[in-house]
């Protein structure tokens, strides 16, 4: 692929990259920096993209993921935290607590959004990231695992916990609305 074509195809995914960067960093300026770094790194290793094959979007998201966590590690002045998290996640079993069975459509979307906002703020970067890739980008577990560099089981575990956190907050809403005891 010639460089102009490579750049044009990469730029098609800028909105998705910015969205991911924004939800990870939670600051507009940091997100813009992150996206710019991602594109520069992608260009510098564009030959590797062609060797690797696969989709441009997931490749760019993988670079963004690594760029973000490299910054997190640097800011924390030690790489242990993220690695410990991965290890802990891998060791933990998925808790067997099924999701609610009531109808979410019966709620006012504004009320749901308000609850989700608070619940999302409580999530760790790792949980919010898989939730974004799953919920907004519509990626499969295998693709999320490739981007985040963790096993599929870890992706499912993170998704499970993130979704349970959201479901719990909506359960509270259901109780307040008298739809649940």
């Amino acid at each position: 692929m010639e460089r102009p074509e490579f750049e044009a195809k990469a730029m098609e995914h800028m909105d998705a990259l910015y969205r991911m960067a924004f939800h990870l960093s939670r600051r507009a300026e940091d997100a813009a920096d992150l996206v710019q770094d991602t594109y520069l790194k992608a260009l510098r290793s564009s030959a590797r993209f062609e060797e690797r094959g696969g989709g441009m979007k997931s490749w760019l998201m993988t670079i963004l993921h690594h760029t973000f966590y490299t910054r997190v590690k640097r800011a924390a002045r030690g790489p242990a935290l993220v690695e410990e998290f991965y290890d802990a996640d891998d060791r933990e079993r998925i808790p067997d607590e099924p999701p609610p069975a009531w109808d979410l459509k019966s709620f006012d979307p504004d009320h749901i959004d308000e609850r989700l906002k608070h619940a999302l703020e409580e999530l760790s970067d790792e949980h919010r990231e898989v939730l974004l890739l799953w919920g907004v980008e519509g990626l499969k577990y295998r693709e999320i695992a490739e981007i985040t560099g963790v096993p599929i089981g870890t992706v499912m575990s993170r998704l499970h916990r993130a979704r349970k956190t959201l479901a719990d907050s909506l359960e509270e809403l259901a109780s307040e609305m008298g739809l649940r005891e």
């Binding site: 800028m14 909105d15 910015y18 969205r19 924004f22 939800h23 507009a28 813009a32 999701p99 609610p100 069975a101 009531w102 109808d103 979410l104 459509k105 979307p109 749901i112 959004d113 989700l116 906002k117 999302l120 939730l131 974004l132 799953w134 919920g135 907004v136 979704r163 959201l166 479901a167 909506l170």
Partner: peptide
């Protein structure tokens, strides 16, 4: 419920305006 939750997450997280 899970499918509705996914739609709600999408609705909530999707509208991030790129500068």
């Amino acid at each position: 419920f899970e499918q509705d939750l996914r739609a709600a997450v999408r609705r909530h997280l999707d509208p991030v305006a790129t500068p």
